[in-house]
Nucleic acid binder design. Structure first.
Lengths: 333, 333
DNA sequence: TGTTGAAGTGTAACCGGTTACACCGCACCT
DNA sequence: AGGTGCGGTGTAACCGGTTACACTTCAACA
């Protein structure tokens, strides 16, 4: 890797010191006289010495790399999350190794093996549902890990995220409070994500406040949301509001309404989930749930580093999220 | 890293063979009898042996990790690109280490040092403009690298991308051909990106076909595009079309038009650049340029692996992109 | 003066793979 | 019988750091 081949022994030779001393200086170690330290640092700079990470990892049994497996980075919530993780790790001298694995458990397991095989010190996983083989492997190898983007108070495994069910329930209450009695919930593929299932369950839990409560499953992209809502607009139940489990689906809903000539919120109310950048710029501005993607990324990275460096135990952390009221939900009361 | 401490010597002991033989089996090496191979593979599975990557990297001087420095992953072109890189590398047994660095050259240099200090075998950079210190360091260490998302036939450095200037020029010709004579170009911060500068230059090169050709610089997000176009709609030059150097800006333009009560394309034409997912779903569908983000990611990864494995030289590669005509540009002729 | 201890430095084993080279047995040839 | 070649395997050096431990010096103190 260090193609120019400047090794610690070269620095030692250059300064007339031993490799032990160079190592101590480079690692900010103790017990080196200021004068020696100066001499070493100068030599390092002169030779452009960069310690060989493999050698270091081999003897310390630490790679200073953290791995994350996420379902996609093409939705900006995930992108924001992963960007925050990367930045926070970077500030602390760690790197991020990333793998993208769809919800398929086998694929996730393979990704985890690959990342561990790259030397990752810890693993960040999305959601709560993972193959037993994976979890068992992590325990056996004593690899620290956290689940993210979700929350479960019964979980014995370290989880940092938000309560999807509760938030979906709150969103439904928000609609009910404003007089909506016929509501459709549009969500992504249930089979692919425990977070989607939580959101749906949370929404269903307050079903008794509604005359009609329908659930529609759509591909998790703008086209999916558009097609789904476009069809639902014809539904005889005549929904007054659409709760989209993702802002991306809500964007599709806007487009469906535009094509059908329905005005938001006068004719149809739409509510999102994520608070993506454009949600306050769209016309009308989207009422949505402000998921703490960035804060979650920072916290995940920070906690993992704290564990790795100081052994601070990884614990469950519940992040809160609020409804951002904007103009896309009509008050029918 | 391998916390359970199953090393190659354990497998050797278990099978009664030497570490050399184990290594040969694990690396699909030659010269091992089928019977021995079976025995070793079984033992590996039984012990759940995972080779220590640091040790392997130390002796082979290869980490099988490729690093990428990108300005953001929060725009889906980059996200798509990086996802394609990750997938393609993964298929070939390589991992992706990622750093996000804004256009700041110092930040990019620091990121590169960090990634190389993590043992990256190669480096993927965005755009053509990079600090001399960085390039010098790469040459000195003989680190293979490629520039992406741009193209320059005069460049002696391996570049895989598309010709931003030419594409912008084509877009302008497209507008001119449809009778637009008063056009505004909305682009991101010039200081931050050579690609933005290329696009602007390309658009400017056909300025003589227009009565008015104005350039506006906006923050590279939906809010930026919306504010910028919102203001430009008041401009006395009365532009008939807006060329946005990014679909994200075009989305902002749509919202600005919606607020101002201007219809697209009847009152105002809008053209984008990227072909993001939603651009065919938006109402009206967006005429844009189909940037080959995924193809570029695949090619970059593939070429880098080919270089690393077989020494196939990294060369310039020009990718083509076409205009996708949809409904957002009026024909005034 | 001898003892103690702290500061500063060096020696060398070790981390866990890879691989050049040596070696063995055996079939095949002359 | 002796030589040649090859398939299959083992030995051990090596990759480039880290760090326990040993050692030297010198100041402080009894």
């Amino acid at each position: 890797m260090n193609k120019i081949g400047v090794s610690i022994r070269d620095v030692a030779r250059e300064t007339g010191l031993s490799t032990a001393t160079i190592s101590r200086v480079v690692n900010g170690g103790s017990k080196v006289s200021d004068e020696t330290r100066q001499r070493v640092l100068e030599a390092c700079a002169r030779l452009d010495y960069l310690p060989n990470p493999a050698a270091r990892a081999l003897s310390t049994r630490r790679s200073k790399a953290v791995a994350a497996i996420i379902p996609t980075i093409e939705h900006s919530v995930f992108a924001k999350f992963i960007a925050a993780v990367e930045r926070t790790l970077g500030e602390r001298g760690y790197s991020l190794i990333m793998a993208i694995a769809k919800a398929d458990e086998a694929e996730e397991l393979a990704a985890a093996r690959k990342l561990l095989g790259m030397g990752a010190d810890a693993l960040i996983l999305s959601g709560l549902d993972h193959s037993d083989l994976l979890l068992e492997m992590l325990e056996r190898r004593a690899v620290p890990y956290v689940f993210t983007s979700a929350w479960d108070d019964r979980s014995a495994r370290p989880t940092i995220g938000y309560d999807n069910a509760l938030l979906a329930e709150r969103a439904m209450q928000h609609l009910a409070d404003r007089g909506h009695r016929r509501v459709a919930v549009v969500h992504g593929p249930l089979a692919e994500s425990d977070r989607t299932r939580s959101r749906r369950a949370g929404a269903a839990s307050v079903g008794d406040r509604f005359e009609h409560l329908a659930f529609f499953e759509a591909p998790l992209d703008v086209a999916g949301g558009k097609a789904c809502v476009g069809a639902a607009l014809e539904d005889p139940r005549d929904f007054t509001a659409y709760l989209c489990s993702t802002d991306v689906l809500a964007l599709g809903a806007y487009f469906a309404c535009a094509e059908a000539g329905k005005r938001i919120p006068q004719d149809i109310s739409v509510m999102g989930f994520d608070n993506l950048d454009w949600s306050r710029d769209i016309v009308p501005p989207l009422t949505t749930i402000d998921l703490p993607a960035v804060g979650m990324g920072e916290m995940v990275a920070q906690r993992i580093v704290a564990y790795l460096e100081d052994g601070a135990p990884l614990q469950n952390e519940l992040l809160t999220a609020g409804i951002i009221e904007r103009g896309s939900v009509a008050d029918l009361t």
